[in-house]
């Protein structure tokens, strides 16, 4: 081996070894970023567990899971919307309307005096009607956004008001209660030792993971959020995908509404108030970029669990509800700042 070749090899080896250490550090940092939500959740549980002896109990665990299942339903839909670089502020109101429609149809049916006809609804029928309403309202959101180029923020803000108003009209401002044992089972029942709402949210999460990871629709959603112009030029029907995504978000909000209504055995006209904010918080804390194209369903699930545990912990620690809002706000802010810092690093 000539000295020149030897020197070259040595230089190369040196170069490799000198870059190896930073590569390891980068890898470590990448792992830290990847698991930051999980680490945050672990730390949160640890702190609350140390401060409250009621936190690490089975009953409280199921309680938290049941509470977050509604937020998970909404957040999954919100994640899909945010991945397309959109936002859906109407999910809380859609949740209330769908819950009210389901309860109203189940309890009172539909009367058509002109035909001397009464249409009664079974539990299945009322549930389907509620879900169809949510999906239709979501589709309407998607249609206004794509057809009239209304910014998602404005279109869904309008829907927030429309759906809330429709809920008030439908319920006349009063709760619709006493919906029967069969319907109540949806929100309060257990199956194989696990609460039914947890099963429902679990199935939704599984389906959403498969859609985002394994289907063409999932790839299109990421493509639209990543670069809409490029996605359009590559032949993706942007409008169709967006309408589908907003419809899914509406449908999932409706499922959330069914769970809430069933758990309370009552459809409250003011149900779901500011649920959209909890959903957005879960999405953001879960690492989904608000500018679209980046994020995962599992990240959102973690975000929802963090929000749920935080809510539960603050209640167990007897923190005033006013302070709870302040703390939640700071947590969301912190999540966005960390996300921004990570994006810069990338």
């Amino acid at each position: 081996m000539s000295p020149e070749v030897y020197m070259e090899e040595k230089k190369e080896k040196k170069g490799t070894s000198s870059t190896k250490a930073p590569a390891g550090a980068t890898q470590y940092k990448q792992h830290l970023v990847k698991f930051q939500s999980l680490i945050a959740l672990f730390m949160l549980c640890l702190v609350i567990g140390l401060l409250s002896d009621k936190f690490f109990t089975v009953a409280n665990g199921w309680n938290v899971m049941r509470q977050i299942s509604v937020n998970i339903c909404i957040s999954v839909g919100m994640t899909l919307v945010v991945l397309t670089a959109g936002i859906d502020l109407s999910v809380g109101s859609i949740l209330a309307l769908c819950g009210a429609i389901t309860a109203g149809l189940l309890k009172f049916g539909l009367e058509i005096p002109a035909l001397d006809m009464f249409i009664g609804f079974t539990v299945l029928g009322a549930i389907l009607a509620g879900m169809l309403t949510g999906t239709a309202l979501g589709a309407f959101n998607g249609w206004t956004i794509t057809k009239f180029k209304v910014p998602p923020f404005v279109a869904t803000l309008a829907m927030l008001t429309i759906a809330r108003g429709l809920t008030m009209l439908w319920t006349e401002g009063f709760p619709i209660s006493n919906l029967g044992e069969t319907f109540s089972y949806l929100g309060t029942g257990w199956f194989l030792g696990i609460p039914l709402p947890v099963w429902i949210s679990g199935i939704i999460v599984l389906a959403a993971v498969i859609v985002t990871k394994k289907t063409r629709l999932g790839r299109y959603i990421y493509a639209i959020g990543g670069n809409e112009s490029a996605a359009r030029l590559s032949g993706i029907n942007i409008n169709r995908i967006k309408i589908i995504v907003y419809s899914i978000a509406g449908g999932l909000a409706a499922i959330g509404g069914l769970i809430v209504t069933s758990r309370l055995d009552s459809a409250q006209p003011n149900a779901g108030m500011s649920y959209e904010l909890d959903a957005i918080a879960a999405v953001v804390i879960g690492g989904t970029s608000l500018s679209g194209g980046r994020g995962t369903i599992m990240g959102t699930v973690l975000g929802a669990i963090i929000i749920g545990v935080l809510n539960n912990g603050l209640v167990l620690l007897d923190v005033s509800p006013f302070w709870q809002q302040v703390v939640k706000g700071f947590v969301i802010l912190l999540a966005v700042i960390i996300d921004k810092a990570n994006s810069k690093g990338e």
Binding site: E111, M117, G120, T122, A126, L128, A129
Partner: peptide, 12 residues
């Protein structure tokens, strides 16, 4: 078929 049923309104 499993979702709705019809009745006369006056009867109800």
């Amino acid at each position: 078929y499993n979702s709705v049923y019809f009745k006369s309104l006056s009867e109800v």
